[in-house]
């Protein structure tokens, strides 16, 4: 047995458990059972097909911050692209061969005078098509409640301190649009090519809770 997942090893808490222990070792919860049952019933009734479900799961798995990072890097090296991206994110994504889906997304740009940060106080709207599924903190009560009330304190909890003379602009994505931040290009990144620049663009800086990574 190459993969021994029988869980008969002593529980040594110096070694943290993996994030995905064998799921079948755990009793099924009420809502997990509901999910499996609803999925099966929809397939049996012909509402969806098993192939459609598998394809959708693969599509969800394929979405990651890499797409958003690629767009930001291009915006940093190509001002005309950046303008097109600010005008229409979905069309700009298509230029790079990225499928940004059908939900409208708007990009907001950090400048020396403005730092943008995104929240959804009513639920957890998030530009999944370009940066993947949201982290837990984005969906948590603390972030949703406090980001509009004390954004600078929330940013500080991410280690991001914005000077007093810079405007902190909070975007509450309440409606049909999703928002992403184009962070400022870090100083010292002049010699980097586009791929290396994309490596400086994290999920968190596209939400606006951090800055892009420092170059070098």
């Amino acid at each position: 047995m190459a993969e021994d997942h029988t869980h008969d090893h002593p529980h040594d808490h110096k070694h943290p458990h993996p994030f995905q222990p064998d799921l079948e070792d755990k009793p099924l919860t009420h809502y997990q059972a509901m999910t499996e049952a609803v999925g099966e019933l929809l397939i049996e009734k012909g509402v969806i097909t098993g192939d459609e479900l598998r394809a959708m799961l693969e599509l969800i798995d394929s979405k990651s911050p890499a797409a958003g990072a690629q767009m930001v890097a291009r915006a940093w090296v190509d001002p005309a692209f950046k303008e097109r991206m600010l005008d229409d994110v979905l069309a700009a994504a298509e230029e790079l061969g990225i499928d940004a889906g059908g939900i409208p997304i708007r990009a907001v740009e950090n400048t020396p005078g403005v730092h943008n940060v995104i929240v959804c106080t009513l639920c957890s709207c998030y530009p999944r098509q370009l940066i993947g599924l949201p982290p837990d903190w984005y969906k948590a009560r603390s972030y949703r409640s406090r980001t509009v009330r004390e954004p600078r304190k929330v940013l500080a909890e991410f280690g991001t301190v914005i000077p007093e003379d810079v405007e902190v602009r909070v975007h509450d994505s309440t409606a049909d649009l999703r928002y992403m931040v184009i962070p400022e290009r870090p100083a010292g990144s002049e010699d980097l090519d586009e791929a290396a620049l994309a490596g400086l663009v994290t999920r968190d800086c596209m939400i606006g809770v951090t800055l892009a990574k420092a170059a070098g």
């Binding site: 009330r149 004390e150 007093e164 902190v168 602009r169 909070v170 509450d172 409606a175």
Partner: peptide, 18 residues
């Protein structure tokens, strides 16, 4: 928006409203 907001007076909040 907040009576005792202690950030910068420059700070803004943008919301989409029907």
């Amino acid at each position: 928006l907040w009576r005792d907001y202690d950030g910068s007076t420059k700070d803004s909040t943008v919301v989409d409203v029907y």
